[in-house]
């Protein structure tokens, strides 16, 4: 007789049940926590608290931690392949997710060299521009592919030193919830990544309108949801990221970032 796993939300580095005590069964069998507005609030608060220290880590350190996540995911490749239904296609998706983490792990200490500039202003000033994290990023993961899809968005957001509150795919939440175990064992400080499962209609409006969320990635949203998110996002001038779900590029990393320009006079 096997020992079954209780699936939980991942908030502030801990695996917790929904404060609402509710669950739903997306596949008709397994109980999955049905996260509430208050769970979302807790996750945003945890993320905000974790943000300054995470953003202050060196680029190299963040790269190492992202690489560690790739190691953890790869070492559990068989488990994720099973979760995705088994077979060659499932294995390929796991490999893609691992590759995505490795790829972005290598970007942390290169991005400022590609996206930053030294600006030749017409005066005696030294002037440079660097990308910085925008802060707390909400991610609406696409239903398909249920593992690679969420990794393709969380990885660039973390690569840019943001902290993340991700909504797992509503119908296929198990790979995302299990992915949280990968993050939990990869040396990410508590609160840097948070993963919530539940019903999109119960969580998305609050994520989109939350005044302490800086950006929201709508990769997994329907056009109607995008419209609603964009309208709610205006409350605090949230950045709404609408980059194609399959994208992997430094342009996607900078979509989660702000450009900061610093001036200083040159003189003796």
């Amino acid at each position: 007789m096997d020992v079954r796993k209780t699936y939980k939300l991942f908030v502030n580095g801990e695996f917790v049940r929904s404060e609402s005590g509710r669950a739903y069964r997306p596949d008709g069998i397994v109980n999955v926590p049905r996260g509430s507005r208050k769970d979302l609030r807790d996750a945003v608060r945890a993320a905000r608290t974790a943000f300054p220290a995470w953003a202050a880590r060196t680029a190299m350190n963040r790269g190492q931690i992202l690489y560690r996540a790739a190691e953890m995911l790869d070492s559990r490749g068989a488990q994720f392949t099973d979760l995705l239904g088994g077979g060659v296609k499932a294995r390929r998706e796991v490999d893609q997710a691992v590759e995505t983490l490795v790829w972005y792990a290598g970007w942390t200490d290169k991005l400022p060299q590609v996206a930053g500039t030294v600006n030749p202003v017409a005066g005696p000033y030294f002037n440079f521009t660097l990308p910085e994290p925008t802060g707390v990023v909400g991610i609406v993961a696409p239903d398909e592919p249920s593992l690679a899809g969420i990794v393709r968005r969380i990885a660039p957001a973390l690569c840019g030193a943001n902290v993340v509150v991700a909504l797992a795919p509503e119908l296929r939440p198990l790979p995302a919830l299990t992915l949280a175990e990968v993050f939990a064992t990869s040396d990410f400080p508590a609160g840097v990544v948070n993963v919530l499962s539940g019903q999109r209609r119960e969580l998305l409006p609050w994520l989109a309108a939350h005044m302490d969320v800086n950006a929201i990635d709508v990769a997994g949203c329907t056009p109607e949801e995008v419209r609603a998110v964009e309208a709610a996002a205006a409350d605090n001038v949230k950045r709404v990221i609408k980059v194609a779900a399959g994208e992997s590029s430094p342009y996607l990393i900078t979509a989660f970032m702000e450009m900061k320009t610093v001036w200083h006079p040159i003189g003796v």
Binding site: N119, T129, V262
Partner: peptide
């Protein structure tokens, strides 16, 4: 903040990106 002026203020230049964080 999107622009930080150190030991100067209100300098602008076409080569220098300008714009805000948060509700700016």
């Amino acid at each position: 903040a999107g622009v930080v002026w150190a030991n100067t203020f209100n300098r602008f230049d076409p080569t220098s990106p300008f714009g805000g964080y948060k509700e700016s």
